[in-house]
Nucleic acid binder design. Structure first.
Lengths: 234, 234
DNA sequence: GACAAACTCGTACAGTGTGCGAGTGCTCTG
DNA sequence: CAGAGCACTCGCACACTGTACGAGTTTGTC
């Protein structure tokens, strides 16, 4: 097996003050979280660490490898409940909410998540714990896989769309309230010939962005878990 | 309302042979489909049209606007069944499968889909027809919205992950069969300390990529629709 | 003191999106 | 037929990107 970015390890302790992969990852995370994917360049990152741009390449093969590390770092923030504590159903709900909260803390994730496999150690840990959680529901072995992966796909898909909406509101330059009003107006103009859309947009924006998006998330997750529950043995 | 890329229209017929937005969109689509997002540059696109790079900017404000147009073009390929033909449940299944097939035809979509709102005419049409489809299930008005949006999020989330997997296999340079074998080996090394992961990976790769991914997709969609069905009036 | 390993980084290259302003052809008016 | 003005094309230039290369410095071992 090739020496990948996950398995590489420093042979001995550094003998002088040097950069480190952890340091680089932390600084990159700070940039991503505050300025988004487009705000991360190797030069800017190096600047933040008071280093030369190409020094980073000693610790990281390419920018893409660095992003792999960052994505796995994020997966490490998700917590997966033990099924003994809350039972399967409640555990799965918590699981979903934890993923959602994590992605909302790192809104650049959807942009990169779907272009690479998640095979880092934290992703593995997440998968493994998820399997014990869903295993406790009494699914057959192959269905445990399918159930967990369905929930993850639903959650990530929903929250990715949510991030798109929230970012649009944030970068619109106006207050959230005004932005909602703007969207409604725009929809009025664009949706006149599309039955149902007008009311749909109005309903969606009536309760406020936050609660609307949360309701949306919970509704589907609940329905999905209902459907999965009937497929579990008990 | 601002003159957006969706509403702009040529005033009169062109008086000589010129470029056109449709032409540009078509050429860009061809590049994206065959070379992916990274393969699309304004210069290359212009080259394909035997034009100067900056000529494109007469028809399109920025590259990002062009991608908005391309995304909406893709939404136009999804077909939404009339509920009268097949009933709600079968219609929703077809709807999901149509979205999946469409995204699999344009695998660059997940990379850009979650970074912009979908408010083009085709997206509107899709939303509107989706609402009549889900409305036929007997949901209350606000729940019609929630149900449709849940299904779309599940489908897009699942197929986005699917695309990531398939692209990884495609660009691995080896045959699909060999790649699956490689993944299993790699998982053996990485998953030894993560209970369940080993068997999970093996199961997932046992039936072949295509059938495995399809089963996965159908399993979750079915479960979700079950859960939604109990929330509909009839 | 010699040598190697660990690490830093300046320079350079090929590429990117796009603002600017000059240039070309067409049609319409006087 | 002259000329104004619109629709469109496009070369040049700028600031910026990821990263290959190779020369440089520090540290530890014989």
């Amino acid at each position: 097996m090739k020496d990948s970015i996950w398995t590489r390890q420093r042979k001995t302790a550094p003998s002088r003050e040097t950069l480190s992969q952890e340091q680089i990852v932390a600084a990159a995370m700070a940039i991503l979280d505050s300025e988004g994917l487009a705000g991360l360049s190797m030069r800017k990152l190096a600047g933040k660490l008071a280093a030369g741009a190409t020094s980073l390449y000693w610790y990281v093969d390419t920018k893409d490898d660095l992003i792999d590390l960052l994505v796995d770092e994020v997966w490490g923030e998700v917590d997966v409940p033990e099924p003994e504590l809350a039972g399967w159903r409640a555990g799965a709900l918590l699981f979903g909410h934890s993923i959602r909260a994590t992605v909302l803390r790192h809104r650049w994730l959807p942009e990169v998540m779907y272009t690479r496999p998640s095979i880092g150690p934290n992703a593995m840990r997440l998968g493994s714990r998820g399997l014990t959680l869903f295993g406790a529901a009494g699914f057959s072995e192959p269905e445990t896989d399918l159930a967990m992966s369905s929930v993850m796909s639903y959650v990530l898909g929903t929250v990715s769309a949510e991030v798109a909406t929230r970012e649009m509101a944030r970068t619109s330059g106006t207050s959230e309230e005004d932005w909602v009003k703007q969207i409604v107006d725009q929809a009025d103009a664009l949706t006149s010939e599309y039955p149902g859309m007008h009311e749909s947009v109005r309903r969606r924006t009536a309760v406020g962005l936050d609660t609307g998006l949360t309701e949306n998330f919970v509704f589907g997750l609940d329905a999905l878990l209902d459907g999965l529950a009937t497929r579990a043995k008990r």
